[in-house]
Design a protein around this nucleic acid. Structure first.
Lengths: 318, 318
DNA sequence: GCCCATCCATAGTTTTGGGGCATCAAAAAT
DNA sequence: ATTTTTGATGCCCCAAAACTATGGATGGGC
């Protein structure tokens, strides 16, 4: 912005008109003004630039080499300006822009990948950034505007200033090692777990959820036999496969087809396993609304997904 | 120019100021206006775009995603506008642009390549286009603005509307085949050429010059024995080397070190051999003036360059 | 060769709109 | 609750853009 002082787009438009028509009268008509002001504005422009852009005799108008160069660049500039305007208007309509999505690992076994694929196909110009993070990592990111939407295990977390939508609600099932003595059973009840060696998530990761699970066992009349705590949900099933013990896992985990693990439906008074979408109420952009509208079509909050329905389905990929 | 209707650069500048300061008061100060008109202009801009660019509470201002995108693009646009202005100003000062130079073949044996090299080194941003063409081809190109300057053999051509400068003036010398009976002589006189088989340029290429040469022979009291006419000056020396005959050539041709040809100074009433720079008086741009000023430093119009001074010099290349 | 048509520049006048001043309203800080 | 900060609003004025009328130069036509 060193040299551009008083110049205005109007003057550039007028210049383009004259340069293209090579005739002040016709150019003025094209600009919807009379000829004299056009001449004056062109003169002003030339004076400010200190460069003669047009060679005019009383008979014909022609471009100087400088004028020719300037015309080319002026057209380029208007093109870019138009692009900029169209771009931000598209953004405002939610057709362009980018969305930062956070999700917990187990969400990749849910309908979320399919929802994202559908959204991506419907909105190819939206850039999507993903970060697989724990709930406790995602919440500060969401609040600090480093994330636009988070898919988390909300249980017991503070949601002031945030809006939420339950994306997935399903029962816990029991993952048991191959050859376990429960192998012949079709269903289990929570009371069957008395004394059974269990692998749990770390209590500090989700204290409220942890307490709720312990409460369920307490109601069933016994305390769980926790032989191991793990810090990521992904590693739970791997540990079950080693034969260390059994684990309560979301029903959708059954799509994990690694050999050595079998899943059994579980009756009894247990909390539901949930994935919740969270976003800042203040940052509910058109784009985010569109995204949520697609995501809603893929949510499953019946709370009763049987394991066998999930087996053999394709979860897609992010 | 579909979407850009009323928008003005002023508004863009104001927006940039607010977007960078994130404070209407300070931005207004930076724009040298009061705060209320700034608010109004930003409002106008947003209304025309149909997009909210700034989020303002009465406490702080922040960019919307659209505003952020628009800021980036607006800065780019101003950068380009500045570039455009600087570019055409440089062009007007003769620092940028391009120059189309025409020259006759023998000019490449003169100082012209050195002059062009010097100009190119002093003005690296000037694009130079060359065309090696005959005088009769160059003149219409010059008049038709397809050439900015022409280096030609002017002799007898019409120069109305053109300006000219003699670039090279030198004597004719005689090119003789190796082993010729003039071999032992230091100098020759035109009278020595009586009966000598001679190679001439085609008379239709330069009728006036042709007549002038014939006139010189006439004054010496005899008519030349023309055994061959050639259409390009370059091929003359090659023909001499075949032993077909001798030829009158410009002294600078002696830098052509092909074996089989010897050059001898020639006394007598002969026209001078000249290369003249020609350009349109109406198209005398700053750039052309600069070019001419460099070229002038390399001109040689003494009319007396001895052959031996030219021998061994490097003519450079275009 | 004179006249007329064309076309850009200039002069004077009108109108639009950008900018200034005073003030209001909202929100944070004390 | 009061003060301070900061952006928005209303009103007025003037600068600048646009209009009308006219001038002057150039090229074509009779």
């Amino acid at each position: 912005m060193r040299y551009v002082l008083m110049m205005e787009l109007r003057q550039l438009k007028y210049f383009i008109a004259v340069a293209e028509e090579l005739h002040f009268g016709r150019a003025a008509e094209r600009c919807n003004i009379a000829q004299p002001p056009l001449s004056q504005q062109i003169k002003k422009l030339e004076e400010e630039l200190g460069v003669k852009l047009l060679e005019r005799t009383s008979r014909k108008v022609s471009l100087t080499p400088e004028g020719s160069e300037f015309l080319e660049r002026a057209l380029d500039i208007f093109g870019r300006l138009d692009e900029a305007v169209v771009c931000i208007q598209d953004m405002a309509e939610g057709l362009k822009g980018h969305l930062r999505v956070g999700f917990i690992g187990p969400a990749s076994l849910s309908n979320l990948p399919r929802a994202i694929r559908a959204f991506r196909e419907a909105n190819p110009d939206i850039r999507l950034d993903f970060s697989a993070k724990s709930t406790t990592e995602q919440l500060p990111m969401l609040r600090g505007d480093r994330l636009d939407i988070a898919f988390v295990r909300l249980f017991g977390h503070d949601t002031t200033g945030l809006k939420s939508m339950t994306f997935l609600r399903e029962p816990y099932v029991l993952a048991i090692p191959d050859g376990h003595h429960f192998g012949g059973r079709d269903r289990l009840d929570i009371t069957d777990l008395e004394g059974e060696p269990l692998i749990f998530n770390q209590r500090i990761a989700q204290p409220a959820l942890y307490r709720s699970l312990i409460g369920s066992f307490h109601k069933a009349g016994f305390m769980p036999n926790i032989v191991q705590e793990v810090n990521t949900e992904q590693s739970t099933i791997a540990l079950v496969a080693t034969g260390l013990g059994s684990a309560l896992v979301p029903a959708s985990s059954a799509v994990d087809k690694r050999s050595g693990v079998v899943f059994k439906p579980l009756d009894g008074d247990l909390p539901q396993w949930e994935i919740t979408a969270l976003w800042k109420a203040k940052k509910e952009s058109v784009l985010l609304k569109n995204f949520l509208s697609t995501v809603t079509q893929f949510r499953d909050v019946t709370g009763s997904t049987p394991v066998w329905e999930l087996l053999g389905t394709d979860s897609g990929s992010l």
